[in-house]
């Protein structure tokens, strides 16, 4: 018991732990912000997991062919938007079941990435290393003791994710477009009466979620490890979904929830390799349970206290 406390103390006083927390938070944050954009306009998007996977894959493919990691990263924006368009089309135009359509996209992404691995890279399972987006050091910030080590040197994508939180918050709560998005998600009939184009706003929300989730996936591959592994998103799209719910469909709330889940992932990783604990190799899978248990407990305990947009998941039928 003493050992566990010591290992925890050791972890929490190590600036590297906070750096790892931010790294683990980033992909979740992109996807959770995407979820906020989609659901605030009233379209449930459980396809985040699939879009992330596609983003992780195609950023590697583009980097592989062009040799440019930034091109790889940016190329997933149109890919994510194009892919999620199918979900938007099925949900908005055809009033399909959004949860079912979302899970269809996950399957298609899983199939497609696995399928293309051999024709493109000539090997199944995982791709060769294609390169990573290099870390940047923020002058000044990195000089501050402890804090500098924790947040001063990071992948630029990490900073981008945090900047996007602010962008999303301002867009949703401080602009006319944001007001329309929220109106469409709460009461599409009323918004329609006032001349808001419900379908266009919903398309915008869903397509944004595609762009964001794909960037989150790209961070997992070319932002962190530099290659793609089959099914490498490992449930992060769903954890992001939980973070969005826990964050009460608000970008700032989603950020806090993502930090909690990112921290539990980093903690599990740190503890299982802690020299103080001597975790046997066979017990390591138990630590991988940790983020999922935290998510489950938090969702179960807090969900009644948050409230989804009133028209979330309900197709809108325009009266003729």
């Amino acid at each position: 018991m003493m050992r566990v406390l010591l290992a925890l103390w050791d972890t929490f006083t190590n600036p590297l732990f906070y750096k790892l927390t931010l790294t683990a938070t980033t992909p979740l944050l992109f996807a959770a912000l995407g979820g906020v954009f989609s659901e605030i306009t009233g379209v449930v998007n459980i396809a985040l997991e699939g879009i992330m996977l596609l983003g992780a894959f195609f950023s590697v493919v583009v980097t592989y062919y062009t040799g440019n990691v930034w091109l790889g990263f940016l190329s997933v924006i149109p890919i994510g938007v194009g892919f999620v368009w199918f979900h938007a089309w099925a949900s908005i135009k055809w009033r399909g079941n959004q949860v079912v359509s979302g899970s269809a996209l996950i399957l298609i992404a899983q199939g497609l990435t696995g399928f293309l691995m051999e024709p493109i890279f000539g090997q199944p399972g995982q791709t060769p290393y294609v390169g990573r987006i290099p870390e940047v050091t923020v002058p000044g910030l990195s000089k501050i003791p402890f804090l500098g080590e924790a947040i001063g040197t990071q992948s630029p994508i990490v900073y981008l994710a945090f900047a996007l939180v602010l962008f999303a918050w301002v867009l949703i709560y401080k602009t006319p477009l944001g007001l329309r998005m929220r109106a469409v998600g709460e009461n599409p009939e009323a918004a329609d009466t006032l001349g808001v184009n419900v379908f266009a706003i919903r398309y915008f929300g869903v397509l944004m979620s595609g762009a964001l989730a794909a960037m989150g996936g790209a961070f997992l591959s070319i932002g962190e490890v530099g290659n793609f592994r089959e099914l490498m998103t490992g449930g992060r799209g769903f954890i992001a979904l939980a973070a969005m719910i826990l964050g009460n469909w608000n970008p700032i709330g989603a950020l806090l929830a993502c930090l909690l889940f990112g921290m539990s992932e980093a903690l599990a990783n740190q503890l299982q390799s802690s020299p103080l604990l001597h975790v046997p190799a066979t017990a390591k899978p138990l630590f991988n349970l940790f983020p999922f248990i935290v998510t489950l407990v938090v969702v179960a305990g807090l969900v009644g206290k948050t409230r989804p947009p009133a028209a979330d998941g309900i197709p809108y039928e325009k009266e003729e």
Binding site: F86, W89, A90, S91, W94, R95, G96, N97, Q98, V100, S101, S103, A104, L105, I106, L107, I108, A109, Q110, G111, L112, G114, F115, M117, E118, P119, P124
Partner: peptide
């Protein structure tokens, strides 16, 4: 032909059943 094609087929089927109006 990689066997993953079956997963793609399943995904497309689910998609069309979800939006059966198409």
């Amino acid at each position: 032909v990689p066997k993953h094609i079956v997963t793609i087929v399943q995904g497309i089927v689910i998609f069309l059943v979800a939006a059966d109006r198409i």
